[in-house]
Amino acid sequence: MTIIDQEEFVPKDTFDAGGFSSPFEKRSKWSKLRRIPLYLTTIIMVAPYYWMITSSFKSVQELQKVPPTVVPNKWLLVNYFNTNFGNVNNNSTDPSNQRGLFQRFEEVQFGFFHYVLNSLFIVVTITVATMLISSLAAYVVSKHRMKGKRLIYLTIIGSMMVPWQVGIIPNFLTMSNLNWLDTYWAYIIPALPKAFIVFFLVQYLSSIPDELVESARIDRASEFTIWWRIILPLLKPAMIAMMIFASIGEWNNFLWPMIIANSPEMWNLPVALSMLRNNGAGNIGMQGIIMGASLLASIPTVLLFLVAQKHFIRGIALSGIK
């Protein structure tokens, strides 16, 4: 695991700004003990994940144990797929006689995976489309002389101050008027204009010399060619950072999908998860299934982060320093 690539902004000799240790001062045995609170905190950080993973593999009987078991006695897949469900000899009052996660959501095709596909489709579409229109806009704002450009840019920056919930009701009414409620349009179209991405890309473009664009114009390259051939390749690191940003945000989006998606076919993963929870709130047996669903819903974004953490972290760090 290579976490958080620091080559760009860290001095090579690891220097401790907190001053807890330095090459010039004697390291005492206390310096090791000092890290004990850190390790305790780490346990608290990891505990929910550990719990989520292990409980999804426990049997219903084991889930009901007081106090709960730390390590599953037996790693089982019943919460995902219960082969015994519907068995004639099964006692119907037996709490373990319930559907596994993949045997639920029968009202939609592919069951649980319908929501995985829904989420994937929505996230990919939004991310690709928003990056295209944002980079176009950033290119114009950054490299064109145009009347009113400054006003547009200031409006974009100013809009970042407004919490998105302010617009939630008019946007809902717009969706309703367009008859877009319960369609993918309502997921995708309002999610496309992302002020922060344009702002970030404009910032990034400002460090790229105008001459590059000017010389292309002298060579009679069309504006779209300049954008596609020159600007996009130069923007690649910033684009990747923002793509990860946008896709993780959309994957985890909950409030807006809950408002616009009424029929089970249109739910995304978080909404489907919350529905599982609403149906099985008090039922301990359901918890293993809910944990399994939570685990599956978390894996894609965590993987994406682990694979692309270098770009992601740089994006966050840049947004904070500027």
């Binding site: 976490i3 780490t42 994940y49 985890n252 978080p270 998860l273 929870r277 939570s294 819903a297 978390s298």
Partner: peptide
């Protein structure tokens, strides 16, 4: 450790809330 501490920022908030609900 940095990865570990950063993980909640990329995990589905619904998923983490559900786990905390059980905690």
């Amino acid at each position: 450790l940095r990865v570990v501490f950063f993980l909640p920022s990329v995990t589905s908030s619904i998923a983490t809330v559900l786990v905390w609900g059980w905690v």
